[in-house]
């Protein structure tokens, strides 16, 4: 078993990438830690200053790189550290979600939530709910096949921004 793959004993374990803001959800996840709230270990957090920074491309890219599910989480409406970043994110993802649905991605794989710095328990629930839901949906391979498949790579279907960049083996 590759060290980067979550344990698969007992069946499929989804890989979930979480894009969270630094001020609310990341701190809320820290609080879940200091409160020792046990939760599923399938989620990997990528820290950003604000949900407003999250480009929808990050999500497609994460799917492409093998994520089975995505979590996007930031400050509650009106609580944004940067005044309005979460409002921009909310508008952006309302549209993006429909696009993903149209493109055939089960929207159950994408979780949007607001988790404040004081909501460690809510973060645990968001994580556990997302893992349960995505586990039931099974692996997401549609996008991975396009790029990570060695054949696909050999045929040159590599996004231009990857060319000349280090890609972990």
């Amino acid at each position: 078993m590759d060290a980067t793959t979550p344990a698969v004993a007992g069946g499929f374990e989804p890989r979930i990438t979480a894009f969270v803001c630094n001020w609310c959800t990341y701190t809320g996840a820290d609080l879940a830690g200091t409160s020792r709230l046990q939760m599923a270990s399938n989620v990997r957090i990528i820290r950003l200053p604000c949900t407003g920074r999250i480009d929808p491309m990050f999500i497609t890219k994460a799917f492409e790189r093998g994520a089975d599910g995505i979590i996007v989480s930031g400050c509650h409406p009106a609580d944004c550290h940067y005044n309005a970043g979460n409002y921009h994110a909310r508008r952006r993802f309302a549209i993006f979600r429909e696009l993903m649905d149209f493109l055939g991605v089960d929207t159950g794989r994408i979780t949007f939530s607001w988790v404040s710095a004081s909501e460690g328990g809510k973060w645990r629930d968001v994580v556990n709910d997302a893992v349960t839901r995505v586990r039931a949906l099974g692996p997401f391979t549609d996008y991975r096949k396009l790029v990570v498949d060695p054949v696909a790579t050999a045929t040159g279907v590599v996004p231009p921004e990857h060319v000349g960049k280090e890609v972990p083996a």
Partner: peptide, 22 residues
């Protein structure tokens, strides 16, 4: 906060810690 304190399974936690560090 995001790994050792919220998981009990040493194997899973170690795999996750490697991921986080990478």
């Amino acid at each position: 906060e995001h790994c050792s304190w919220i998981h009990e399974d040493r194997e899973k936690a170690t795999v996750k810690a490697v991921d986080i560090t990478k």
